[in-house]
């Protein structure tokens, strides 16, 4: 277990280094590096951002600026399951908001927070995942669920735990 964490940490540092080798020590390498970290941790830890700034010769404030500009990056640790409710036009008119509210209620999210206190779920809205034909759409750790209803949400969330395969995206 210890060795696994160590290897994971070292791997990400190595992968970041590889990106610098491949794309050069240039500001345009920044976003691929941030994506690499976001994929590995589901958020951007501060220490790694400082590391990225060093590796690219950018100021940490600039890296922070880019990281906070894009919705795809998060500076807060996200839940084990990241649930994205599409609220694009098609999904919205087909009732995405009742779905969103049903999810928040089901996972007991209160006070406009995005992540549950036990760190299990993060619920957020996104603008169009490009699957309008299946509206309303919800994605859970990247897996797409179409024509979702508030009732269907209960079933989906209840079976999540048993399908451990999506847990470690």
């Amino acid at each position: 277990m210890l060795q696994t964490t160590a290897n994971r940490q070292l791997d990400i540092l190595q992968r970041l280094d590889n990106l610098v080798q491949r794309y050069g020590k240039h500001s345009s390498t920044l976003i691929p590096m941030l994506q690499e970290i976001q994929n590995a941790y589901r958020y951007l830890p501060e220490d790694l951002l400082t590391h990225v700034a060093t590796a690219l010769d950018l100021s940490p404030a600039t890296v922070y600026g880019v990281a906070t500009f894009y919705a795809q990056f998060s500076l807060e640790p996200k839940g084990k399951y990241v649930i994205q409710v599409c609220d694009g036009t098609a999904c919205h008119v087909r009732g995405s908001m009742p779905v969103y509210e049903a999810i928040c209620k089901k996972v007991r999210l209160v006070d406009g927070k995005a992540t549950t206190e036990d760190g299990m779920f993060t619920v957020e809205t996104v603008s169009c995942v490009g699957a309008c034909a299946a509206a309303p759409v919800v994605t859970i750790n990247g897996e797409v669920y179409g024509k979702v209803t508030p009732d269907a949400i209960h079933v989906i969330l209840d079976t999540l735990e048993s399908r451990g395969d999506t847990a470690d995206a």
Partner: peptide
């Protein structure tokens, strides 16, 4: 920058 260290293997 004042900040934390990074856990490698604890």
């Amino acid at each position: 920058i004042q900040g934390e260290s990074m856990d490698i293997a604890s």
